[in-house]
Amino acid sequence: MEAGEVAAVCRNCGRPVAAPVPTRCPSCHSPRLAAHPEIARVGIAHLDCDAFYAAIEKRDDPSLADRPVVIGGGRRGVVAAACYVARRFGVRSAMAMYQALDACPHAVVLRPDMAKYRKVGREVRSLMREATPLVEPISIDEAFLDLGEHALPAAAAARLVRRIEDEVGITVSVGLAANKFLAKIASDLDKPRGFAVIGPGEAPAFLAGKPVTIVPGVGAAMARRLRAEGVLTIADLRRWTEAELTARFGVFGRRLYSFARGLDRRRVQPTSETRSISAETTFESDRSDFDDLARALPPLARTVAARLGAAGLAAGAVVLKLKTENFRTQTRSHALASATQRADRLLEEAEQLLRPEADGRAFRLIGLGAGDLVPAEAADPPELFAGAC
């Protein structure tokens, strides 16, 4: 299916769906379809874990599933997080704990376990980086992702969300748009477990009636200054020229002008070191034969090579990942004589690692990874490939 023909994405299996959009996915029959006329035109995602701390506690103690859970200290402390059940009673993050307990006296109050939360945050971040190396963490539980390398970024986002739910056991909300500003807004539209799109064509009309405080950087002080100028909404802001806004508010005036029109030139900037880049696939039925397993490697090698190029990195080692039919994971790795970004070299090394492992055991998953990452400038010395074709 061509991208221009896509009218929806199945949030359950990630398959694209053409118009007219049915009530259920033609592939998996799930009713959870995300439909939008511009769903094929958005490549930037903002992922935000739903009530992160509380969700982890509910995951680890199923008896809390339907109860109001508040993470925080004693009555003199503040609320660090509140689940959605507690929020129905008016409990909010940063609220004084005594106010939270007055609003919801039957809440279950738990002390924060930051070591556990950080561990889960790393697990979520790892899955994000398997979807794309272009991940910009914002906090322990949210990040921007540039999914533009995928033929249909919305489908990649749906698959990632499903993996986080299945493998980590918490839910996330995702916003998709053509830029970071709109993606962040979209992720808040349908919480929890949301999946929302703001297309570039609809952005001006969507933003017009929103308060000017929707613009990042417009806090209470800036809102007062704008209100004094008669600016309460994005539509009010659009009445000013870029020159007028810059003269009145300096460099920030340029941002106001652009954001008011749904424009944002900021790129997704990975801010922490990428330790590995990988891709994997799960088979529809288990495979044990070497040739059957090896047939899955070429597309994985091309994907990893493309991700290395996008991240400006090269592989100093190749890693093979296999998951057996009883869900046991094993990895094999080999250090390279020289770093590479080339798909053919990644493939050759992965095949060599696979051969001794294809001993009759059945595998349900195979993955190929790049480790010992170095800057791309160190990759593939020309003299090593002078005769390559």
Rank of each mutant, 00 (worst) to 15 (best):
P137A: 13
P204N: 05
R307Q: 12
L110A: 11
A151G: 14
N12R: 09
A7Y: 03
D190M: 08
A358L: 12
G90S: 12
P192R: 00
A155S: 15
P20S: 14
A379L: 06
L373H: 00
L297A: 07
A337Y: 03
I366M: 04
D286H: 10
Y117A: 13
K184F: 14
E377W: 07
L47F: 13
I39H: 05
A81I: 05
R361P: 04
A205E: 15
P37W: 01
L322K: 02
C10A: 00
D264I: 13
L33K: 00
L263S: 06
L313S: 05
D372A: 13
L176Y: 11
A80M: 04
P137C: 07
R59L: 15
S139P: 09
A151S: 13
R87Y: 05
K184E: 07
A235C: 03
A243M: 01
A100T: 06
F195Q: 02
S288H: 09
A3M: 10
E136I: 07
A35T: 08
T303E: 07
R227P: 09
D291F: 14
E351P: 00
C104G: 11
G201Q: 14
C25V: 04
A247C: 05
A314W: 01
A228R: 13
A51C: 14
G90D: 06
R342E: 13
L47H: 06
P192Y: 06
S93E: 11
E348F: 04
A40P: 11
G194A: 05
I140Q: 05
I39R: 11
V85L: 04
L320Q: 00
R267C: 10
L320H: 03
S333H: 03
P31S: 03
L263I: 15
I214N: 12
R287E: 11
A337V: 11
I138D: 08
F195M: 14
E280C: 02
E242V: 01
A131Y: 09
K116G: 11
Y257G: 06
R111P: 09
V85E: 11
E38V: 13
E349L: 08
V78D: 01
M1H: 03
P62G: 05
P112D: 12
E229W: 01
I366W: 01
R163H: 02
F283D: 02
T340L: 07
V319L: 02
R238L: 06
R162G: 01
S278I: 02
P16H: 10
D146Q: 08
D102M: 12
P26T: 09
G175D: 11
K119S: 15
A247Q: 00
G219D: 12
A296P: 00
M97A: 14
V9D: 11
G74W: 06
M97Q: 07
E149G: 14
G201P: 15
E38T: 07
G219R: 08
V78N: 05
E273A: 14
G169E: 10
G367N: 02
E5N: 12
L354C: 06
A156V: 08
C13W: 01
K321R: 10
R275S: 01
A80D: 10
